[in-house]
Amino acid sequence: MNSDRLVSTVSAFEQSQTAQDVVEVFVHAILTLGFQGFVAADIDMQDRWKLLLYTSMYAFFKPLDGAAPWWSDDPVAARLATGEVRPFRVEDAWANPLPSAKDRWDYIVASGYGQGWVLPTAKPGYAGGIVLFSQNNGSARQEQDLQLGELHLLASYFHAFVTERDPDPDDRYFIRNTLGIRSFKGRKAHLAPREIACLRWCAFGKTADEIAYLENISVHTVRQYLKLAMRKLDSKSQAQAVARGLTYGLFKI
């Protein structure tokens, strides 16, 4: 994935009317990079029964979700709950699973989904991530490794847009949604021009240091603008603030 493709994919997210449409845009993007599909979760750390669970592999993961409270012994969920922010390999997380989870992992491996990347989408109060399952193809995996940074950024945008659309559970891609996300339809947010400018640079994947150089301000000031923008947009992450900024038409990319 290159920068142009990243920008066009995020633009396609913005134009999507439903959470299902957002998933389909993301699936198209990851299939071109040799992934088989994904499963993702967003878990409230204060009440782990409140969660969003969604996947492009509904038929496979729906029965697994019904079998047991998987988040209690899932090593990927456990690693995300520690506050992990860097991508890690799914097979590394499952290297030594708890006995209660081993049968589930063996079933996943036997089905051909035993390798891939976990891309954290955590935000304060929540643990979450998107698991991308790789095809059994060495060259594809090498290409995925090279694109990992942009994939992680894309996953953050994707998750923000999905949660913004507040999907119903049991609807093609969505196994569960008990987070009780509030609707933001019709709400207005008044951001200062510099807050909008910093948020727009985030949409293009720029770091705080890069934004500071582009806007000729300090890194500290950039971070303050971004915090204010997140607060005004009632967002728990910069990616979610970017998604809402696009939804409200505060800027375009």
Rank of each mutant, 00 (worst) to 15 (best):
L153Q: 13
S156G: 14
G249H: 10
S3C: 01
R165G: 12
A239Q: 01
T247D: 14
L226K: 01
H28Q: 14
I175F: 06
Q36H: 01
F161L: 03
D92P: 00
A67V: 06
T121F: 03
G125Y: 08
R223I: 04
A208W: 09
A12S: 14
S56R: 02
W201D: 12
Y225S: 14
M230T: 12
G186Y: 08
Q135W: 02
A197L: 13
V25F: 00
Q238H: 10
A77K: 05
L246F: 02
A110M: 04
G116N: 03
A59T: 14
S16F: 05
W105V: 12
W117S: 11
Q142Y: 03
D106P: 00
F38V: 06
W70R: 07
L119D: 05
M1D: 04
L191R: 04
Y225C: 13
H152G: 06
A140F: 12
A229T: 07
N2I: 02
V39L: 11
E195H: 07
T121H: 04
L153H: 11
G180A: 08
L233R: 05
L119S: 04
S100R: 11
V219C: 01
L179Q: 07
D145K: 07
L52E: 08
A189K: 03
A243N: 05
W201Q: 13
A212S: 11
F26W: 02
D103Y: 05
A197E: 15
S3W: 02
P63F: 06
A239E: 01
W70G: 00
L191H: 08
A189Y: 09
Q15F: 00
S134G: 11
P120D: 01
Q240K: 13
L52D: 07
A95W: 01
F88E: 09
D47V: 03
K227Y: 10
K62P: 01
F158L: 09
M45S: 05
F184E: 15
F13S: 05
Y126S: 02
I175L: 15
E143N: 04
P169C: 05
A229V: 09
L51Y: 06
Y54K: 04
L214N: 10
Q144T: 09
D21G: 10
G66P: 01
Y157K: 07
A67I: 07
K206M: 13
W70H: 03
H152P: 04
V109R: 13
R244K: 15
D171W: 00
A203H: 05
H220Y: 12
P75C: 10
W117H: 10
W71I: 14
G128V: 01
L151P: 02
D170V: 07
G114S: 09
D170R: 14
G114A: 09
I181A: 11
F61V: 09
D65S: 10
G205M: 06
R172G: 00
V22I: 15
A78M: 10
P193T: 10
A77C: 15
Y173D: 10
M45W: 00
S183P: 09
Y58F: 15
F174N: 03
K185C: 03
L146A: 13
L80Y: 05
K185Q: 13
K102T: 14
H220C: 07
D103N: 11
E215V: 05
D92M: 07
T55R: 04
W117F: 14
D168G: 05
E164D: 15
Y225W: 12
F161G: 00
V25Q: 11
A208L: 04
A77F: 12
D171N: 14
T163Q: 13
D103Q: 13
G83D: 02
Y157H: 14
